[in-house]
Design a protein around this nucleic acid. Structure first.
Lengths: 344, 344
DNA sequence: TTGAAAGCGTTACCAG
DNA sequence: CTGGTAACGCTTTCAA
């Protein structure tokens, strides 16, 4: 038996459709008796309101479209968690689409969501060079657009992201406070924003503490495991070795582990490793690793909250937000026992 | 500028809405010239079809509702990946809802999805005792319902799950083929289906190989890390120790690791550990662990494919499918070098 | 307190 | 080949 509609109820009750509609939403000008009868019958006949028919009229879908590059990536799945929680609280629904890091799929996803008349779009752009045309389309269609994590330069849209530079600085500051002075950096590519920002943060910290910048201890490359292996090779050639290496992400750290193991070196005795990441590192169990723990859940929460402000037409809020991070101390470097900072 | 509609195009072109509608979907009885003009203007005015208005008429949403208990759980995020891929191929959309393992949220999610008039419902039930009423509602509303991974006894619905029993047997068979005869089991709770099935598979294998069942080497408990610690304690008390332990999941295995480390024992020299899981174990890096690798992606794929058969009204397909698993060999047990089966 | 009618964006059926 | 009209399920305004 397919789901019935209001007309059906109206017919059985020999009243008009309008009466049923009003009774169902508790409109004050329907008698309590009528309301009761309508509700009872609705329950009995298993009536379920038709969300989109309602939306057609109100021109609101109470739905936010979200596009992420990859849902199996724990970073994004936590972010989506945060997004959904924030949406829930305000009675919004979320429709999730996955772009698989392909801008073509991203384009289709966005078009679909627009077709569904979502009230807003929350997007983490794919790694591929984006299709600017689709974003132009979004813009002229007046649908609020907010980017999270990955930004696409598109003026007039909001952005919520991790404070990479600040976090990197925070982590290196910590390492320095642990007493280390010789700190290298296995950087990612400086063609990518996160690569640049993390490198900048590292440099900020060194400068702040009056430490020299030793180019031979900075290895640029990619963000893959192999880049970690190669990077370690580069910074480990000179006469003087760094005491601690700051890896720009988990894959690079993993590669460094490989290289270290291969040389018969030990962590943290011979060299310490700290890395940029979040607590659900897929490959390196975080308890054994000292990381700067970025919180994707919080990022999702903030992104959706910014969206809601946007939609409600609030004024004067910041349209660019950067999420702060916390240090999680693992066994990959030696931390002074009584330095007064077991947990930062 | 809000998104325009067909009427707008019709007005500007001084033709009827019907003509525009037909031209846009390439109906054969519209002149090529007219089609061209309509398409051009649509493009120019940034027309985007209204998905739900269309659905209102066709009474099809081309959308499948999916409910999972937890999207940050990599098992489910991979499953959702599979679900979305299969849906995509057939032009279906997916709306994802997350129940946070709460049956009350699950109930709301289902109601929402029904309100959105999804064409089908794909559900992994939450751990809490389910609200049977909502499933009854689904049933009488004629919306196709398929459970995946976690089943709720509800006759007439499809189910796609992991073949836990077969997989457990396969893994223990492998351990036996490696030459071990003393194999214990850190079981979960036998009140839960997966606990029972994995235990059964373990027993199946022992029986098949004519090995005795040693009750003192089977520890039942829960599925948490602490249960792994406790379980190891139980099976490690007797005079004769097992050579290999089969843990019913990753958390239990992790607990066993803790207990083993605490006693100063070594893996795999003193005791081997194999476990039930999938390749993206959150806590134990899978390369170091021998596991029976279940594939959640495949599960999602199969579940959605069953749904599509259901919707298309195909006949005679199996409504219960169990997904097979593969062994992934890690360093947690010693495997004979030339046993002829480096990879199964 | 209830009902009639118009409208939301689209499609389908018939006429012309 | 094109257009008028009703219908999809619901809400809202205005009358009764």
């Amino acid at each position: 038996m397919p789901i019935i509609n209001q007309s059906e109820i109206a017919r059985k009750l020999k009243v008009s459709r309008a009466t049923v509609s009003k009774a169902l939403k508790g409109d004050s000008d329907i008698s309590d008796d009528m309301k009761q009868r309508v509700h009872d019958l609705a329950e009995k006949l298993n009536y379920i309101p038709h969300y989109h028919a309602r939306g057609l009229h109100s021109r609101k879908s109470m739905t936010i479209g979200v596009v992420v590059p990859d849902i199996s990536n724990s970073f994004f799945s936590y972010a989506v968690d945060g997004i959904m929680d924030a949406a829930d609280r305000s009675g919004y629904h979320v429709i999730l689409a996955v772009s698989r890091e392909k801008s073509e799929i991203e384009r289709k996803n966005i078009l679909n969501l627009l077709s569904m008349r979502v009230d807003g779009l929350l997007i983490a752009v794919s790694k591929e060079t984006p299709d600017a045309a689709i974003y132009h389309k979004v813009k002229i269609s007046d649908v609020p657009l907010i980017f999270f994590d990955r930004i696409l330069e598109e003026q007039g849209s909001g952005f919520v992201g991790i404070d990479d530079r600040g976090a990197a600085k925070k982590l290196v500051d910590f390492v320095i406070r642990c007493g280390y002075r010789k700190i290298g950096h296995l950087a990612g590519s400086s063609h990518v924003r996160i690569g640049r920002d993390r490198l900048e943060g590292y440099l900020d910290s060194l400068k702040d503490h009056g430490l020299p910048i030793r180019k031979e201890w900075i290895a640029e490359g990619g963000f893959e495991r192999k880049d970690g292996i190669a990077g370690f090779g580069k910074v480990w050639t000179g006469r003087e070795k760094p005491e601690v290496l700051f890896a720009a992400n988990d894959q690079i750290a993993l590669g460094a582990y490989d290289a270290i193991r291969e040389r018969g070196l030990k962590i943290p005795e011979d060299v310490g490793i700290v890395a940029f990441g979040h607590h659900d590192f897929a490959q390196i169990p975080s308890p054994s690793m000292t990381i700067i723990n970025v919180d994707p859940y919080l990022l999702g929460l903030e992104a959706m909250e910014m969206m809601l402000k946007f939609i409600r037409g609030e004024k004067g809020f910041k349209t660019t937000v950067r999420i702060d991070s916390e240090i999680e101390i693992g066994e990959s470097i030696r931390v002074p026992e009584n330095g007064g900072f077991r947990r930062i």
